[in-house]
């Protein structure tokens, strides 16, 4: 298995992993999850069987770290109240849609973030969340429907 040097993964995908975690666990916990994600990835990397979707693989690890954190916090705490007020990251923070996304249930939020913030294919959304592609589509659609009903945002999947 000929894998690219790990530094190239870090160079190419660090922003995606970080944005994904900020949207999923909030800015306060994102940095810890981010570090744990990359250490876990580095540990597992030489044993990886496929190098076809390394971005998806990294987002899978990041999604697991986010789920671990949600479990540790307890379900009630998953409110994402600590989203950045100002543009800490290059995403449309000033758009109130992200406040609404942050209030979605965890699975719908993760799916919507992966699909729209990170522009991931449904296969990657599914792999990252450890669910089927059909379930990934369902979560995106349910999330969008909730955004549309609750906040009047019109997105198409």
């Amino acid at each position: 298995m000929e894998l690219p040097p790990f530094q190239l993964l870090l160079d190419r995908y660090s922003h995606d992993v970080h944005r994904f975690l900020i949207a999923n666990v909030g800015i306060t916990d994102a940095d810890d999850c981010y570090q744990e994600t990359w250490i876990s990835a580095l540990r597992a990397y030489p044993h990886l069987q496929h190098a076809t979707n390394l971005r998806g693989w990294l987002l899978t690890i990041a999604a697991r770290k986010a789920i671990d954190l949600h479990r540790a916090r307890g379900r009630a705490a998953v409110t994402m109240a600590d989203l950045p007020e100002h543009g800490h990251v290059d995403r449309p923070d000033d758009d109130p849609v992200w406040e609404a996304v942050a209030r979605l249930p965890p699975k719908q939020r993760a799916a919507v973030v992966l699909r729209f913030l990170l522009d991931a294919e449904y296969a990657t959304v599914a792999a990252s969340m450890g669910i089927s592609e059909a379930a990934a589509r369902r979560n995106v659609h349910e999330g969008l429907s909730r955004l549309r009903k609750g906040h009047g945002y019109e997105w198409t999947a």
């Binding site: 870090l10 660090s14 922003h15 992993v17 970080h18 940095d31 981010y34 570090q35 990359w38 250490i39 543009g87 800490h88 990251v89 290059d90």
Partner: peptide
């Protein structure tokens, strides 16, 4: 902006 520096970790 952007992700934190991980070089030490």
């Amino acid at each position: 902006s952007g992700p934190p520096d991980l070089s030490k970790a």
